[in-house]
Simulated scan of single mutants.
Amino acid sequence: MAASGNAENNSELRIFGGLDDLATDLAEYIAQLSEDSVKERGFFTIALTGGSLIYLIRKLSEAPYNKTVDWAKWYVFWADERAVAKNHVASNYKLTKDGFLSKVSILNSHIYSINDNLTVEEAAREYEFAIRQLVRMRTIDVSEHNDCPKFDLILLELGSDGHIASLFPHHKTLERKEDWVTYITDSPESPPERITFSIPVINSASNVAIVAVGTDKAMAVQFAVDLNTSFDAFKLPARLVNPNEGKLVWFMDKPAASFLDSADES
């Protein structure tokens, strides 16, 4: 690890010299949260996105984690998903299944993907209903701050425009406070129809991790992390991530952190 520090909102910054080091530390971080959550609650609830995250968590399917993680206690969700068929190349479910889920022993009944036979609005409502049922059963914990679901970990990836999940700059979904799961039909990135967790749900998680990799993320990282700088958060949704009761950890490579002072630490 090249550097570690704290941002102004008490989030932790972890900066790595290479992707292999980042992936190794990310795997250890997730495995430790899994162990702690299973000991405390009997479950581990994790919400993923797609993209390079799936490549980076691949080490969890390797030794020692493939044998030491209590996979039967995992419940897997998606913080955002594209409204496409599950076998579509753009599906986060397909990407995650091919790159990770098929390599570990998580129970199929504990994997919650959207219904791709519904409209995107219907799919969002049904997904939220499924989460509400699990909250009632206390499989997913509940936030005392706002009664939102309190996932053990929400794992996100930063876009070069500062978006997280499918929450894009200046999009009306950023203002939706009542929905746990909302939807969009006009995503600036293809495909246009997606479901996404809302900001209140993300900020209710016990732990939020944001991964940022590459030079094209450097400016977004700087404005997301430096909260002393005056900046319209609706221009950069990642800046809105500030867990109410939980902890935020950033996992970055040096190019993504190149505009931060801590990137020069040794």
Score class of each variant (00 low, 15 high):
Y127E: 12
E122R: 03
D80A: 01
N146V: 12
L153K: 06
G99A: 04
N66W: 12
I140W: 02
E144F: 13
L60E: 04
A123N: 03
D70N: 09
E62G: 01
F100H: 08
E122A: 08
I154M: 07
V120Y: 14
F151E: 15
S52D: 06
W74V: 01
E121H: 10
N117W: 02
Y75N: 10
K103M: 09
A130G: 10
P149Y: 02
N108C: 09
R82E: 00
S105V: 07
E62W: 02
C148E: 14
I111T: 04
K94Q: 00
Y112I: 15
A90M: 09
P149W: 01
S61Q: 05
A90F: 13
K86I: 09
S105G: 14
R136P: 13
P149K: 02
L153W: 06
K86Y: 07
I106K: 03
A79K: 06
N92Q: 02
N66K: 08
G99C: 06
R132V: 14
S113N: 12
R132Y: 09
A90G: 05
F100W: 15
I140M: 04
A83E: 02
T139S: 13
M137S: 10
D147F: 13
M137F: 11
W71V: 07
N87K: 12
I114H: 04
V142W: 04
L118A: 06
R58K: 09
L56A: 14
I114K: 03
S143Y: 05
L153G: 05
K67S: 13
D80K: 01
L56D: 11
Y65M: 01
I154K: 03
L53V: 10
K97N: 11
S143R: 12
V135P: 14
V84T: 00
V135I: 13
I111M: 04
Y127S: 14
A63S: 15
K150V: 12
I154F: 11
N115L: 10
S61A: 12
K73P: 01
A63W: 15
D98N: 14
V89N: 07
C148L: 15
G51S: 09
A130T: 11
G51L: 03
V84L: 00
V120W: 10
L118I: 08
